[in-house]
Simulated scan of single mutants.
Amino acid sequence: MPSKNRISYENKMLHYNADLELVDILCTSINLGELKVENESALFSHIDPTKHPVLSKRSVCQENRRMAAYHLRQTVFGSYIKDMYEEFSRFLRNTIAEAVANLKINPDRLVGEHKVNLSAKEILSLRTITAINEKVVDILFQTLEAEQSTIKLIKKTCDKLGLDISDDLINNALPYLELRHKLVHTDGKLDAEFKRKYPHIRCTNRDYVDLRYVMIREARNHVNNLVFAMDDEALTKGFVNPHVS
């Protein structure tokens, strides 16, 4: 039985997965010419110039339909990678928080080389040990994220919880988690270092990541495998509890 943290991750991703499937169906229909008007009077069937002024002004041809579908696919697929990273990060943070709440983690191991300083005023204003624990976890996780290294975020989370996760699981998920930073900061343009490290990530002739449905499914599978392994380890070690519906 998985933890509530994994269940929450999976439930959030289900909605994003449905978006992927819908876009794939829509783009396939467009590429097959199934949404065009028979007399070629408009770019798409059901187009309304008052509601769709941009598409209405485009020349009516199959190439423009394909271009619109391609841009839609890249936009939604890019959002999926970014959302997946956010949900993965939230899963890590929630796993640490539950381990702290369950008093199952060694304080020295949790804090490690990181410093968490709370003034007497802050401690008194928080009032309860639960609120103090939450504040400590927030500060600690923000410190981990501030290092701006996905591999450090994963490995230090594993170290703090004493989770034994194989390097293969981490390395398989890492390219897709790091791709989020490229999408956010460079609009998906890949530098030479990223292409050298991850040659299997396809890019266009202008060095922008070429997001395809096959690649997105690979990303989902590899990140899911990492989440599931971390959750299993945390459950085995008693840091988190099985979810009871």
Rank of each mutant, 00 (worst) to 15 (best):
residue 36 K to F: 05
residue 162 G to D: 05
residue 114 H to V: 12
residue 98 E to M: 08
residue 119 S to R: 08
residue 210 D to M: 13
residue 80 Y to P: 09
residue 229 A to R: 02
residue 70 Y to H: 09
residue 207 D to Y: 13
residue 115 K to W: 03
residue 36 K to R: 12
residue 224 N to V: 08
residue 207 D to T: 13
residue 7 I to K: 11
residue 115 K to F: 00
residue 124 L to D: 04
residue 230 M to T: 09
residue 134 E to D: 10
residue 36 K to I: 04
residue 19 D to M: 12
residue 161 L to R: 10
residue 97 A to T: 06
residue 205 N to H: 14
residue 235 L to Q: 06
residue 157 T to N: 02
residue 117 N to H: 12
residue 20 L to D: 00
residue 180 R to G: 00
residue 77 F to P: 09
residue 98 E to R: 11
residue 211 L to W: 11
residue 168 D to R: 14
residue 74 Q to C: 03
residue 91 F to R: 07
residue 200 H to K: 15
residue 158 C to R: 04
residue 183 L to Q: 12
residue 2 P to A: 14
residue 61 C to Y: 09
residue 165 I to M: 04
residue 122 E to A: 14
residue 193 E to H: 15
residue 123 I to P: 08
residue 113 E to S: 15
residue 130 T to W: 07
residue 241 N to R: 03
residue 237 K to I: 02
residue 31 N to A: 09
residue 41 S to C: 02
residue 59 S to E: 14
residue 96 I to E: 06
residue 109 R to N: 15
residue 76 V to N: 01
residue 137 V to Y: 03
residue 153 L to E: 05
residue 164 D to W: 02
residue 193 E to Y: 15
residue 147 E to N: 10
residue 110 L to N: 12
residue 81 I to N: 08
residue 60 V to I: 15
residue 31 N to K: 10
residue 124 L to V: 07
residue 125 S to L: 00
residue 140 L to C: 05
residue 178 E to I: 09
residue 112 G to A: 14
residue 131 A to P: 06
residue 176 Y to N: 06
residue 155 K to Y: 01
residue 75 T to K: 07
residue 82 K to H: 04
residue 163 L to C: 01
residue 111 V to I: 15
residue 88 F to N: 09
residue 120 A to F: 13
residue 192 A to L: 11
residue 150 T to C: 10
residue 214 V to D: 15
residue 69 A to N: 04
residue 44 F to D: 10
residue 30 I to D: 04
residue 154 I to M: 05
residue 171 N to C: 00
residue 178 E to S: 06
residue 77 F to H: 10
residue 112 G to S: 14
residue 37 V to M: 00
